[in-house]
Every structure is written in C-alpha cells, then in structure tokens.
C-alpha cells in the first residue's frame, strides 16, 4: 500500500502533462514568439530595427489614438455603467429587473465583432434606421464619423457599459443601507453621505473597473476591423496591415513589435488594476 502510494505521488504529475503541454504549445510558445521575434530579423538574428519602428510617427500616432480611444470609451462606459448599476442595485435584490439586467449585460459585454459593427451601420449608417427617421425631421446623422474614432467610441460603449455593470454591481451591493441610515441619524445630508461615505468607499472599485474597461477597449479588434476596412488608425489595425499586406524587406517582424507594444500597455493597466483591487477589497464584501 505505502509503496504504491509513493510511486503514485511520484508519478502523479504525469496527469497534468497533457494540459501543461497544450498550454505550453498554444499559449506560452506563441506569446514568447511575439516577445523574442520582436527583437529578431527574418533570419532570426538579433536586431532592434522592429522596436525602432515603433518610434515612427504614424505608429506613435496609432498608439496615441488607441490609448485615447480606450481611455475615452472607458470613462464613458464607467460613468454610464455606474449609473445603470445604481439603477439596478437600488431595485429589488431578487426582482425581475435585476435578473434581466444582469443576464442582458452578461450577453452584451461579450457582444462585439462584426455583428456589432453591422448593428450600428444599420442604425446610424447612411441607410440606417435612425438616420432615415431623423432625416424626415431634418436632422442629418449620416457621415463618415461612424467609420472614424468618434464612431468607435460610440460603438465600444455598447459593450463597455454592460461590462461596467457586471464589474461594479458587486461593489454597489457592498454598500450597506445601514451606513446611510447612520449618516442620517447623525444629522448628515445626502451630500455629506455621498462626500464622506459612498464616494470614498466606491472609488477603488470604480478606478479598478475603469482600468479593466481600458484594457478591454485597447484589446478590441473585430469591431474596428469591420467598421474600418483599410488603414491603421489604431494599433490592432496596424497589426492587421503588418500581417496581411505584402511584407517589406526587413519589416517581417514588425507585427510582433506592435503586439509587444500592446502587451506592455495592457500589462501596465493590469498592474494598476491589481494595485487598486488590493486597496479596495477591504470594505466592500
């Protein structure tokens, strides 16, 4: 018995081999390829040319656009999402509204890609439902704005707001009604309650959600690709160009350098997120 147990535990790591092997091959290897080949040329000799490419003006502006787009859509998504989360949280905890809202938000937060782009083209595109309706009222919605950064901000809000609701709702639930009652008993006003209790308590959760939304928008590709069929306004679209167009001599690994740049930006956001989470977890549970 003891000997079979001993060999069993010595050999038990074999059970994890298929999973670890798969993950190593299809997750860790591709990721390390991105990192390593960012610093290599087509013949796998070390070079800094790809990374230097990141300093070219149009790449810098693509990163600027990506960060601006992600930041703006994160702020809009976080503010509006927090409002919607408040509406949901102040309802009946087991009510229909809450059940429907969380289910719908769960779906919409994952909803993106080509379908979302089409939905907005069908709404505010040249022949869109809303465009045609407002045309009769003398308002002109149509224009190229949908296919540029302002359009992306609008379209991204469609999945950012629901994500915010999902992330922020538990934090709002953690705010006890008793705290408000305590403020009222002590003669405090609503403003004082917000200023000294609710806002300070919710700030870490809000900031954390903001960072999560930023990373979410920064990583999004499909919706932008379906709306903007050419060019590289934002970094993911630059990567598309690098992967699909004719590869220029000496530029074979530029896509990897762009991807590395994205990883770094997301890593900073996630690091800050972890820091904020650690601070906020104390009160709200």
């Amino acid at each position: 018995m003891t000997s079979s147990r001993a060999t069993g535990s010595r050999l038990s790591w074999i059970g994890a081999v298929p999973f670890l092997g798969y993950v190593a091959l299809f997750l860790l290897l591709p990721t390390s390829l991105v990192v390593v080949q960012s610093f290599a040329d087509a013949q796998n000799r070390p070079t800094l040319a790809n990374v230097r490419f990141l300093a070219e003006p149009y790449v810098v502006s693509a990163f600027g656009n990506s960060i601006a787009l992600s930041a703006v859509s994160a702020v809009i998504g976080a503010v509006l999402g927090a409002v919607l989360a408040w509406v949901v949280a102040t309802g009946h905890p087991d009510g229909t509204l809450r059940r429907i809202a969380t289910a719908v938000c769960g779906v919409l937060a994952q909803f993106g890609g080509v379908t979302l782009a089409f939905a907005f083209i069908a709404t505010v595109g040249t022949q869109g439902l809303l465009t045609l309706l407002l045309q009769d009222l003398g308002l002109d919605l149509a224009g190229p704005w949908l296919y540029r950064l302002p359009g992306l901000v609008l379209v991204y809000s469609y999945f950012q707001i629901p994500l915010m609701v999902l992330v922020f709702l538990p934090a709002l639930d953690g705010v006890r009604p008793q705290w408000r009652e305590a403020v009222e008993t002590l003669g405090g006003s609503t403003w004082q309650y917000l200023r000294h209790v609710a806002v300070p308590l919710l700030t870490p959760a809000f900031l954390g959600a903001l960072l999560l939304l930023f990373a979410n928008a920064f990583a999004a590709y499909a919706t932008a690709a379906a709306l903007i069929s050419q060019g590289g306004v934002i970094v993911p679209l630059q990567i598309r160009t690098a992967l699909t167009s004719e590869v220029l001599l000496g530029r074979e690994n530029v896509g990897k350098a762009l991807a590395l740049g994205m990883v770094l930006v997301v890593a900073v956001a996630m690091y800050l997120y972890a820091r904020v989470q650690a601070r906020g977890a104390r009160w709200l549970r």
């Binding site: 790591w13 997750l27 290897l29 591709p30 990373a215 990583a219 590709y221 993911p236 990567i239 991807a259």
Partner: peptide, 29 residues
C-alpha cells in the same frame, strides 16, 4: 493529487484574458 499546481493551472487558464487575442494571433501565425 497535485494541489500545489492549482495556482499555476488557474494562472495559465486565466492568462488569455490578459493577452489580447490580436497579440496571440501574431504568435499563432
């Protein structure tokens, strides 16, 4: 049998959430 590995497995499984799909595509190519 391998409770020591549970954190590692969790980390590896959640890793794709933090790496944008477009970055993984570059590595998968």
């Amino acid at each position: 049998r391998l409770p020591r590995l549970s954190r590692l497995v969790e980390f590896l499984c959640l890793l794709p959430l933090t790496i944008p799909a477009i970055v993984l595509v570059v590595g998968w190519a």
